[in-house]
Amino acid sequence: MELQVTTLDGKADGSVTLKDEIFGLEVRQDILHRMVRYQQLKAMAGTHKVKHRSEIAYTSKKSIKQKGSGGARHGAKSAPQFRGGGRAFGPEPRSHAIDLPKKVRALALKHALSAKAKAGELVVVQNVATKEPKTAALLAKFGKLEWSNALIIDGAEVDKNFANAARNIPQIDVLPVQGINVADILRRHKLVLTKAALEALEARFA
């Protein structure tokens, strides 16, 4: 697949050939769904916690006589059936993470890249280096390029001026190529790759 390379100023700067084994796959929604679910569950804190009967600071005095009241034989007020008592079978801190084979995760990333390429939402830029960290100037460039909702992937290190200028722009995410992931790709309308990021991805899947 041939794709035109552009600059931040919107000028053409040659072209690149995308590898079909990375950007030309027939998209499988089931693999993408599995990967997004894997990421979301892994990101969950799992810190939900309630106090159980043994953790309640309440009187342990027997509330009523054992016999003769005509009611149930209740003990301490910290029992779950009483107001202010402990919770029965409540949530405990735990990990929500699920397992997903490494090969499936790698395949899901290829399918996400292929989905963007197939939809015409993949853009390749020469680089994103800027001279000054000016948000207003960068926002004007994004307006000309129609990048209102985009994930921008740079090389091993993101240009510092560009990152500082872009961090206050809503619906714009900037990541180094090591941080590229399926969930972030799918939640943004456009995927913007620098040539350095493209070369790194092709080397990763070689």
Rank of each mutant, 00 (worst) to 15 (best):
A165Y: 06
G71N: 14
P101I: 00
H111L: 05
D159W: 13
K141L: 08
A115T: 06
K61D: 06
M35I: 02
F162R: 09
D13K: 15
I152H: 06
G84Y: 11
I31T: 09
E199L: 12
L198W: 11
P176N: 14
N181C: 08
E121I: 01
Q81R: 12
K195G: 03
G75I: 02
V192L: 11
K42P: 01
L138R: 00
I56L: 12
V192N: 05
Q66G: 15
I64P: 03
T17R: 11
L198V: 11
A76N: 14
K190N: 05
H111D: 02
T17G: 07
H96Y: 15
H48N: 13
F23G: 00
E55L: 08
T130G: 09
P176W: 00
V177L: 02
N149K: 04
I22M: 03
G10A: 12
L201E: 02
A136V: 08
V158R: 00
L139Y: 09
F205S: 07
G10L: 08
L109F: 10
E202H: 07
D9H: 09
G10E: 15
I98E: 15
K42S: 15
K61V: 05
K144I: 05
A45F: 01
L3A: 12
E2V: 08
V16T: 09
A165L: 05
G10V: 09
Y38W: 15
H189C: 01
S78I: 02
S148Q: 06
E202A: 13
A137W: 02
L198K: 09
A76W: 14
D30R: 10
A196K: 09
R37P: 02
R187G: 00
K65Q: 13
N161S: 14
A156L: 14
D30W: 00
R28T: 03
M1L: 14
R34M: 06
T17F: 04
L151M: 05
L25T: 04
N149Y: 05
A203C: 06
L113D: 01
P93W: 05
L113M: 12
A88G: 01
A12N: 13
G46T: 07
A200Y: 00
F23D: 01
I169M: 11
M35Q: 12
L32E: 02
K110S: 01
S69R: 08
K141P: 01
L139M: 10
F89T: 02
K195W: 03
P170S: 04
N149E: 03
L3E: 06
K42D: 10
R187C: 01
I185L: 07
G90T: 05
N149D: 14
L198C: 10
V36G: 03
I64K: 15
K134M: 04
E55Y: 09
K102E: 10
Q178M: 08
L201V: 12
H189A: 02
H111T: 04
A183E: 06
T17E: 09
H52P: 00
A88S: 05
K144C: 04
Q66I: 10
D13E: 15
L122F: 08
V104L: 12
R105M: 11
R94G: 02
G85T: 04
S148G: 13
S78T: 05
V182G: 00
H33P: 02
N181A: 04
I64C: 06
Q171N: 14
A72I: 06
H33Q: 13
Q39E: 15
R188I: 03
L151E: 00
H74F: 15
R37I: 08
T7C: 14
E92G: 00
R83N: 09
A12L: 08
T47L: 11
G14C: 12
I22E: 00
